[in-house]
Design a protein around this nucleic acid. Structure first.
Length: 558
RNA sequence: GCGCUCGUAGCUCAGAUGGAUAGAGUAUUGGUUUCCGAAGCCAAGGGUCGUGGGUUCGACUCCCGCCGAGCGCACCA
């Protein structure tokens, strides 16, 4: 006999059976089981009776009465009540809830993992910063959200590939090359001859110095040796890109973010994929020539105006390699592709999708998915810091990690809905870092560890604890919260909203802290002691599992 | 002007698929430790969910108008 812990789906099945008996003609009605906000409304609530009121021409409360009478017997279901306009409120038996403790202790770090992803291949592209400067706060948000999203999808059973795409061709790289070259020749940004589009940050001087010193750089499986020849623009370009890629990589590593695949824009050209894509688009009949340029009729696919593909100078606009790149993602067999980007890139969505539709190779409309995070505003000394790459005014991800710490930075950047703008107050994060909710969660974990350490027995003994003793209000609340965890992971993956995990953990920690303050654990009665310790050990496990999804550490002491 | 995202407590933010009395944290005020970690706990005050309509048994949630904020509107990426 398997232990029922997914009460939601279990109840859903019970109500489906009752529905077949009460209203055989309406078995298609969707059965919604939700968690009521108020404890007095039970553990789970069903509004089926209200939905059936109209078609059955009966009062919701009467229908509720019939449904309850037809509900199959289950060990899970305790009290069932009709409330309000016709809600059916179900109270789950404490015995059923108590079973979660051993389930968690047995499952360990796999507790909360699900199978809805069915091992389907999903690719998440995120950060994808151009190698023209250090990573800043905005990239940090992308890194935190993207990485947590990957963790959550993985936990939900998807086969996740993390990918970083970088533009190592095009005008911005030309500007970078020129800027480094000028620096090599001793020209500084305050010189009147410094180009308008040049990069002015101090890091340009670092790159130039390294190039002149003939340094060797390892990045993305490439090993680049600087020639030191300041007149060789191609050598400078190659070196500068590798150098900045290495710097970004070090930052990402310090932020605990790792990628499976790095894709280069230049490779799309050298492998002929851009040219092939252009030919296919021309063959599709969705292009035309006008004023010496080649256009794609993106208005055929919902864009507000057509877009240039090939400029009058013969070069391609950026979105052509983008389409080629995404075609490649499709051909690599990803049923699902998610692009995590800053909201300032939202205009590319329509263009890329239009290009893919125009290719007419069976890519579904609305493919790929996008998660766009809104902009991050940085406050320092109470004033907004304007971020300008060219001017070199920056708040780098490295600064944040060093000043605030990796855990707090990750939590802060991932714990908000991507759609909402984020104010990162550096002074607050630095000077009052104890206010950060991440410490509240970690503290709960450390506290549990302290108790278990003082108990000084083998935790294996907890596997045989008699959980029947866990019946106080604090305990059932905590049990229910632990039971909710797998559902949180699933919803988080479904909504592409990793911040839900962060909020859940805060609630879990709060339930634990309340329990902790109202209870004693190292009591004389061995059976009671083991039961309580088993519960908090399970709580610690869920905290660890949740923090792991956020990429935040779970210290045993702090 | 057009498009995307948003507007919830003084501040920072949750409220998936419409549900019952809209929630946390922080700040403010008061209480809490001879006892396992007080980075904690308990309690109080604080709201016309930007605004005006609409849809229905029911709207913070869906639709329309208006006001406000951010981001886009290149043969840059």
């Amino acid at each position: 006999m398997s232990v029922v812990l997914n009460f939601k789906s279990h109840l859903s099945e019970l109500f489906a059976q009752a529905l077949r008996e009460v209203a055989p003609d309406f078995t298609q009605t969707e059965i919604l089981i939700e968690r009521p906000k108020l404890a007095t409304h039970g553990d789970y609530s069903c509004n089926l009776a209200m939905q059936l009121a109209k078609p059955l021409r009966k009062s919701p409360r009467d229908i509720a009465q019939l449904l309850i009478a037809a509900l199959p017997k289950s060990d899970v279901v305790g009290k069932v009540e009709i409330a309000g306009a016709g809600f059916i409120n179900v109270f789950v038996t404490t015995a059923a809830k108590q079973k979660v403790v051993h389930a968690v202790l047995q499952a360990g770090e796999t507790y909360g993992r699900g199978a809805v992803g069915a091992k389907r291949k999903v690719q998440v592209e995120f950060v994808s910063a151009n190698p023209t400067g250090p990573l800043h706060v905005g990239h940090g948000r992308g890194a935190a959200v993207g990485d947590c999203l990957c963790n959550v999808l993985d936990a939900a059973g998807w086969d996740v590939t993390r990918e970083f795409y970088y533009n190592d061709a095009g005008v911005q790289i030309d500007n970078l090359t020129l800027s480094v070259q000028l620096r090599c020749k001793g020209v500084t940004p305050d010189d009147p001859s410094w180009p308008e589009a040049g990069y002015r940050g101090d890091y340009i001087a670092d790159v130039a110095q390294a190039f002149i010193a003939k340094e060797k750089v390892d990045a993305d499986d490439q090993h680049v040796q600087a020639s030191g020849d300041v007149n060789d623009a191609e050598a400078i370009r190659h070196f500068a890109v590798a150098y900045l890629r290495r710097e970004q990589d070090l930052d990402l590593r310090a932020f605990r973010v790792e990628f499976d695949v790095f894709s280069l824009e230049s490779a799309l050209y050298s492998e002929g994929k851009v040219a092939a894509t252009v030919e296919n688009l021309i063959a599709s009949g969705h292009t035309y020539e006008q004023e010496g340029a080649l256009w794609l009729r993106t208005t055929d696919f919902g864009d507000d105006k057509d877009r240039v593909m090939r400029k009058t100078d013969g070069g391609y606009t950026y979105f052509v390699p983008d389409v080629a790149y995404h075609l490649g993602k499709w051909q690599r067999g990803f049923q699902r592709v998610i692009n995590e980007q800053g909201a300032d890139h939202h205009s590319t969505i329509t263009r890329v999708r239009a290009g893919l539709q125009a290719l007419n190779v069976g890519i579904p409309q609305g493919w790929p998915d996008y998660v766009l995070h809104q902009m991050v505003t940085v406050l320092k000394n109470g004033e907004e810091v304007k971020i300008s790459k060219r001017a070199g005014s920056y708040v780098t991800l490295r600064d944040l990690i060093e000043e605030v710490g990796c855990d707090a930075t990750r939590y802060f950047l991932a714990a908000r809905h991507p759609d909402s703008q984020l104010v990162f107050d550096i002074d607050l994060a630095k000077s009052k870092s104890n206010d950060n909710p991440v410490y509240y969660i970690q503290y709960a974990h450390a506290r549990i560890n302290a108790v278990l350490t003082q108990w000084a027995c083998n935790p294996e003994a907890l596997h045989t604890a008699n959980v029947n003793f866990l019946d106080s209000e604090y305990e059932t609340t905590l049990l229910q919260k632990i039971i909710d965890y797998p559902q949180v992971v699933e919803t988080s993956a479904q909504e592409l909203a990793p911040h839900l995990v962060a909020f859940y953990l805060k609630e879990l920690a709060a339930d634990f802290h309340s329990y902790y303050n109202a209870s004693r654990f190292l009591v004389d009665d061995d059976a009671v002691k083991c039961a309580r310790l088993a519960l908090i050990a399970a709580t610690a496990q869920v905290i660890r599992n949740g923090l792991a999804l956020l990429g935040v550490s779970a210290p045993t002491q702090m």
